[in-house]
Amino acid sequence: MSVSPSPLADRLVDQYGRTPIAAAAGLTLLVAGITATSTPAAAGLEPGTRLRHPR
């Protein structure tokens, strides 16, 4: 059993193995990057802006 800051990650790696979890993490990052680049600038989510809670 490996030691990581996330017990969930430890459990997933122990159950499925390191390679499938690394591949899933890479795919998640790829999808997040594609989603971020396809978001229109008019949405107001430009880099460096903070999301504010509506009052």
Rank of each mutant, 00 (worst) to 15 (best):
T28S: 08
V13Y: 00
D10N: 15
R55C: 02
G17Y: 02
I34S: 09
G48K: 04
L27R: 07
T39N: 03
L29H: 04
S38P: 06
S6C: 12
E46P: 01
R50T: 05
P40F: 09
T28W: 10
V3E: 14
L29P: 01
L27P: 01
A23Y: 10
A9C: 00
L8D: 15
Q15H: 15
V13K: 06
T49K: 03
G17W: 04
A25C: 05
A36N: 06
L29T: 12
A42D: 03
S2W: 11
T49A: 07
P47N: 04
D10G: 14
R50K: 06
L8V: 11
I34W: 14
Q15G: 11
R11Y: 12
L27Q: 10
R11C: 11
R55W: 08
G48S: 05
L45H: 07
P20D: 09
R55S: 01
P5Q: 12
V3H: 15
R11F: 12
I34H: 02
M1Q: 11
L45K: 04
L51Q: 04
G44C: 05
T39Q: 11
L51C: 09
G17M: 11
V31I: 14
P47Y: 03
G33R: 01
Y16C: 08
S6E: 08
L30W: 05
V3P: 06
S38D: 13
I34E: 10
R18I: 13
L45W: 02
S38W: 13
I21Q: 06
A32L: 10
R18G: 07
P47T: 00
I34K: 02
T37M: 14
A22M: 05
A24C: 10
A9L: 09
L51Y: 08
L29F: 14
V3G: 14
G26D: 09
A9R: 09
P54I: 04
M1N: 09
L12W: 11
D10R: 15
P54D: 06
R50A: 05
S6I: 01
M1T: 09
T28F: 07
L12M: 08
A32P: 02
V31P: 08
L29I: 06
L27I: 03
P7K: 12
A23M: 07
G44K: 04
P47V: 01
S2H: 12
M1G: 10
S2K: 13
V3C: 10
G33C: 03
A32R: 12
R50C: 00
S2G: 11
R52E: 05
S2V: 12
A22L: 04
L45I: 04
A9F: 07
